[in-house]
Amino acid sequence: MARILPMAASYSLQLAGLRPPSPFSAAVRLASNARLGLHSAPFRRLALSHLGSAMHHGQLFGIKPSKLIRKASGIEASAAGNMTTQASTTVSQEEALEWVKKDKRRLLHVVYRVGDLDKTIKFYTECLGMKLLRKRDIPEERYTNAFLGYGPEDSHFVVELTYNYGVDKYDIGTGFGHFGIAVEDVAKTVDLIKAKGGKVTREPSSLKGGKTLVASIEDPDGYKFELLERGPTPEPFCQLMLRVGDLDRAINFYEKAFGMELLHKQDNPEDKYTIAMMGYGPEDKNAVLELMYNYGVKEYDKGNAYAQIAIGTDDVYKTAEAIKLYGGKITREPGPLPGINTKITACLDPDGWKTVFVDNIDFAKELE
């Protein structure tokens, strides 16, 4: 059986753990985990012993050392002896949240695997109107990938397709939902897809409680696409839907750790699901993340087809610390990648969905 490789951007194989992660500051890790809330004299000794780490952690977000000293020295043990205040972490959370909101973030691309690259490219360009932006073959690693979208990668959310030599089928699983594509005429697009032999799973119809025309289709690998009838938009590739087991937890994480905005939330009790739209700008002008919670369903099978999204950031180090502080799991410590020096960090959200953050300046250099 052919070996199934993970997604393959210029940094994809390294993210999958096929190359050792770069070392990261032990002091920063210690600072983000250290608990300063112990009792009376032992507490004060421990607080002072970790003060250097706390300062390092705080300085990452621009906190003055004197502020941390005042925080640490002002904590007193409670009479009950059960106080566990985390001075440096509390300050860091505040500073991290403030920084995350100011960070210049944008959805860059979504990565997933396909069994026949040429067939998929043909479908996306002829049926969905995408353009092939670039394509590259890496024979020594036995994979090819292609980037497609509705505009340049430096300003649009695009698709990164990965074909691994000899692997013609993947399991999409039950956690991935669909991609959303905004089109000006849903019925005309559906007719074109039918003429090209595409699979239509929902004929054009209005959304429940609304006037927007929608239709559903599947690409050659079985990935679902929802066609949404809209007027002209700068970002036709407009949605990525993933299912989560705890919607409130997911919203909180994406707001605080990723700096996304809750654009709107809609409960559908008759169909037993709730959705939340998260993103970095209005839905009619930007790609957004649609999170879906199905009543009573806590876990999903993620399969091996869908890989991850990539998001741009001004600082992967600060991003990683914010993710840790708000419950995410870092799977690739921040730092430059060997060979190309692009700085990245990778993480899992509370539901196990993977995201890679890429340094904005380094990403721009890659595109050059």
Rank of each mutant, 00 (worst) to 15 (best):
S49I: 10
G129N: 01
Q59L: 12
S53A: 12
A80C: 07
L108K: 04
A72I: 15
I138P: 03
M55N: 13
F176M: 14
T125N: 02
T90F: 08
E76R: 15
Y163F: 09
A96E: 00
W99A: 10
K67C: 12
D171T: 15
G81Q: 11
F176T: 10
V159W: 00
T90G: 12
R105N: 04
C127W: 02
A72W: 10
T162A: 13
L148V: 00
F179W: 07
A87Q: 01
G129Q: 00
A77Y: 05
K67Q: 12
L148N: 01
L117P: 08
G166K: 09
L128R: 00
Q59W: 05
M130P: 03
G173W: 15
Y124V: 00
A47K: 13
H156P: 03
T174D: 10
H156N: 08
H50M: 15
H109D: 11
I63N: 12
K102Y: 06
L48T: 14
P65G: 14
E140P: 05
S88I: 03
I75A: 10
G74V: 06
N164K: 04
K102N: 11
E160F: 01
K104Q: 11
A146L: 07
K104D: 04
R106G: 02
H50F: 15
T162E: 11
S49N: 15
A54D: 14
F176S: 07
K102G: 13
L97T: 15
E126W: 01
E95D: 04
Q93V: 12
H109R: 07
L97W: 07
G175A: 10
D103W: 08
E153K: 09
R44D: 05
L161Y: 00
V91F: 10
C127Y: 03
E160D: 06
K67P: 02
L60H: 06
G180A: 11
K102L: 11
A54F: 04
A80Y: 10
R70G: 08
S40Q: 06
A80F: 13
I69T: 09
P65F: 00
K104L: 07
E126D: 09
L132Q: 05
K67S: 13
K104R: 14
H156W: 04
D137E: 08
S155N: 04
H109C: 11
G175H: 09
I69V: 14
N82I: 07
R106T: 09
K67G: 12
K64M: 07
F147I: 04
N164H: 05
N145Q: 11
F43P: 07
R70I: 14
W99C: 08
A146E: 09
R44T: 10
S88T: 03
Q59S: 12
M130E: 01
L107M: 13
E98K: 15
L107D: 04
E153C: 05
L133T: 00
Y143I: 13
H56R: 15
G58Q: 07
S40I: 07
F147M: 05
K169R: 15
A72L: 14
L107A: 01
